[in-house]
């Protein structure tokens, strides 16, 4: 198990120039590739041990694809993903299988990510069955321990997913992800489908587990308030690129990129007085298609600050201030 310490400077996860393209094909028999959806188009970031990197953006920005590409659920088109010093993109199936126990995932939709025909006990034990080397008794004990850890009654292990509420099903998914003592968990919108009062339960659970087990999270979400609450650092994606990345407080208190600024200003506040003061920066139009992203800066078609240069040159993704990266021509 990893220790949360700042002394260990080497990042647990290092992503460099990651690209994930999906081919667009025409024709059924003689199908040919006519283009590509550039879901993720050259992104780089690091995640340190014990921290939570929040990954936010609107639908279609490539945040979920990023999570899946890191786990090698999709084989990246280009770029590098290093986990604890190992280059995951270079590993074959068997070697990946050996490292998988350390990297796990929690999914958004607990209906489709839990087998409805398997009991909860079987679902939570499955990673151990696949990994092998566990005696039956040992596995039973571990399942009970895991269910307890995530706040479920171990006596309910023989029940089926449909007998649980949405929040409880998400706990089952978390218990399964923890079965093999992972270091790193990709949480892909784990609370988006839940009601407000239940969201808080699951977020508190994730934070408690992080503190107790020294976990590292990539927390993918579109809810900026929740990302602000849970993340140590935050990356903002738009059309397959990272627009800005900074420490939590810096990103929310001093967003540098015009997209981040408008995104934060667009979030309604649960406070009528603050709401009357809030002036959202309204963006023009809709999200362009990722199969045909705008030239130059991908955000220039909606950017309130756009100039001629923005439609011609891709802005460099650079460290504008210490630990604060942004990709915009006009950020000083």
């Amino acid at each position: 198990m990893s220790n949360v310490s700042t002394a260990d400077a080497r990042p647990l996860v290092k992503v460099e120039g990651l690209k994930q393209y999906f081919p667009i094909t025409r024709g059924v028999i003689f199908s040919r590739v006519v283009g590509a959806v550039k879901a993720v188009d050259g992104i780089s970031f690091e995640i340190s041990r014990g921290e939570t990197l929040g990954l936010v953006g609107e639908s279609g920005c490539g945040k979920s694809t990023t999570g899946r590409s890191i786990l090698q659920l999709y084989r990246p088109t280009a770029g590098s993903v290093q986990f604890d010093g190992t280059e995951l993109t270079a590993l074959d199936r068997d070697d990946l299988g050996a490292i998988r126990p350390r990297i796990q995932m929690v999914f958004q939709d607990s209906y489709s990510s839990l087998n409805p025909r398997h009991s909860v006990g079987k679902i939570v034990a499955e990673p151990m069955v696949i990994d092998g080397g566990y005696a039956r008794g040992e596995m039973n004990e571990r399942v009970a321990e895991l269910l307890e850890l995530v706040g479920l009654n171990p006596k309910h292990r023989s029940r089926f997913p449909h007998e649980f509420s949405g929040g409880q099903r998400q706990r089952i998914g978390i218990a399964r992800a923890l079965a093999l003592n992972p270091d790193f968990i990709v949480c892909d919108e784990p609370i988006s489908a839940l009601d407000v009062s239940i969201q808080a339960q699951v977020v508190n659970l994730l934070q408690r587990l992080q503190n107790e087990l020294g976990l590292t999270y990539l927390f993918i979400a579109h809810d900026l308030s929740m990302v602000r609450h849970i993340s140590t650092r935050v990356a903002v994606m738009y059309l397959g690129r990272v627009m800005e990345l900074a420490d939590n407080a810096d990103l929310f208190n001093e967003p540098l990129h015009p997209y981040t600024q408008s995104l934060i200003s667009a979030v309604p506040l649960p406070d009528p007085k603050a709401e009357r003061e809030r002036r959202p920066i309204l963006l023009k139009g809709d999200l362009p298609s990722p199969s045909n992203p705008p030239r130059g800066c991908v955000f220039h078609t909606r950017c309130p600050l756009a100039q001629a240069v923005c439609s011609e040159e891709v802005p460099a993704y650079r460290e504008v201030r210490p630990r604060h990266w942004a990709a915009c021509h006009f950020v000083e």
Binding site: V196, S197, Q199, A200, L224, S225, M226, R228, H229, I230, S231, N248, A249, F252, I264, V267, L269, P270, D271, A274
Partner: peptide
Amino acid sequence: LLEALPRVDQDR
């Protein structure tokens, strides 16, 4: 409900 909500304009 109000206490369960995090806010985008308040620190972690």
